[in-house]
Design a binder for these strands. Structure first.
Ligand SMILES: [Mn+2]
Ligand SMILES: [Mn+2]
Ligand SMILES: [Mn+2]
Ligand SMILES: [Mn+2]
Lengths: 225, 225
DNA sequence: ATCATAATTTAGGTAAGCCTAATTTTTATC
DNA sequence: GATAAAAATTAGGCTTACCTAAATTATGAT
């Protein structure tokens, strides 16, 4: 039943993958918002995806969806392409890290297996995209990496940035300005009591930056031991 | 009326452009065959394209279509992207010239203005694609180049290859085997009387190749004076 | 000029993906 | 446990871009 997988379906699967990484199910509304379409349309599509011959998702009414192993493979295939494109654009075509996500969102659907192979080879099999997200290897495997949220760092403690949120160009430009990027070493200076706003110091640049708690939750770090 | 131009429409316009280069109109059947769809579908689409606010084509029942200046600009935009992609893949990603057309046919629709600019710059504003077809410049202008069909060469005379047909990988591999590529110098050795099959010698490689008349008509050369 | 054939158009349908409005189910609060 | 709000689903439609079959128009050979 699922021969050629449409661009729309590819994006659905990718979103479902992201929302179910933590183990929970992806809700209809969550997907509708992320994809910029109505909840009714999502219900429709999700029902379809649960009825293909090997189904892409398991779906229970009002309970949200999860990817089947089959659906997960399909999702990882696109995620691999997306992240390869991002790092290629930065490394080979002079893109900044805030420009690549939107571009990859489109190109991922137009990438042939051959192009994927050539780009992967040209970059010598890169392991991470520009935002620190791991690139599934040719067998679609992703290494497990120990990581915690920046928000969970204690005052005075240090860490190394592993990944930053990758979708919002404004946020990326803000982070880039201070040198907050994968590999950067940071130290938590202070945290305000009520709204939990953090001041952090970036070792490499000497900068200090202010990070709110919601952004802090989306930045992953490795805590210095 | 014509805000976002669909991938399908882009391909229609490109085909119409090709078929009307000689000044004649593109026929319904011609387009149907080239696009791999039914004649009825083509009729439908060209009627639509002739009714947009600035129309893309002029259409008269049973008389075929031509591009309006507006439609021509739209076509050239995609042709530019197509050819830039082809040369980029060859120059930067190790593609052979028979692999790039199919790839470009898809990628051309996924290329942003920014990517177009970056690729153009990375190649230092290339003027020709791997098959010798001219790349419209940033203003969508194409230089006029004096060229004749290989078939029109006289026995014993010489010429320089300017462009070869670009769609059929088999043909390209055949030509490549003998070194028949843009820039190659050739000499017509003989032409059989009935079926007009030609034997040509390629200076650079010393090879001799047999070229039938229909292929010979699709290879453009500059005749040596 | 006639008439068969080829080319094109019209008519009527389908599938994918989206929409809004109405309805149903779940959930959270009193 | 009733009930209001939120979440999800169903129902009915729409657009794009295809299709086949039937009807029409153009063409070219007698
Ligand atoms: Mn991304
Ligand atoms: Mn996408
Ligand atoms: Mn081409
Ligand atoms: Mn195309």
């Amino acid at each position: 039943m699922p021969q050629k997988i449409s661009e729309n379906i590819q994006d659905y699967l990718k979103r479902i993958y992201e929302f179910t990484l933590s183990g929970s199910r992806a809700s209809t509304n969550q997907l509708a918002q992320a994809l910029g379409i109505s909840a009714a349309s999502v219900t429709n599509m999700v029902q379809k995806l649960s009825k293909t011959d090997p189904p892409y998702v398991t779906y229970e009414k009002h309970q949200g969806v999860k990817l089947t192993p089959f659906g997960q493979q399909a999702a990882l295939k696109i995620i691999r392409r997306h992240r390869l494109i991002e790092i290629y654009l930065v490394e080979k075509l002079g893109y900044t890290w805030d420009e690549v996500h939107a571009e990859a969102e489109v190109l991922e659907h137009a990438m042939s297996p051959l192009l994927e192979k050539r780009i992967d080879a040209a970059l010598d099999h890169p392991k991470f995209d520009p935002h620190g997200d791991p690139i599934p290897d040719i067998n679609l495997e992703i290494p497990e990496i120990e990581q915690t949220a920046l928000s969970s760092l204690e005052i005075g403690n240090k860490g190394r940035v592993l990944r930053v949120p990758n979708e919002d160009p404004q946020v990326l430009r803000y982070l880039g300005k201070f040198g907050i990027r994968p590999g950067a070493h940071i130290k938590l200076i202070s945290r305000t009591p009520y709204d939990q706003t953090m001041r952090i110091k970036i070792t490499e640049t000497g900068n200090e930056a202010v990070i709110g708690p919601s952004l802090g939750n989306k930045i992953s770090i490795a805590k210095d031991s």
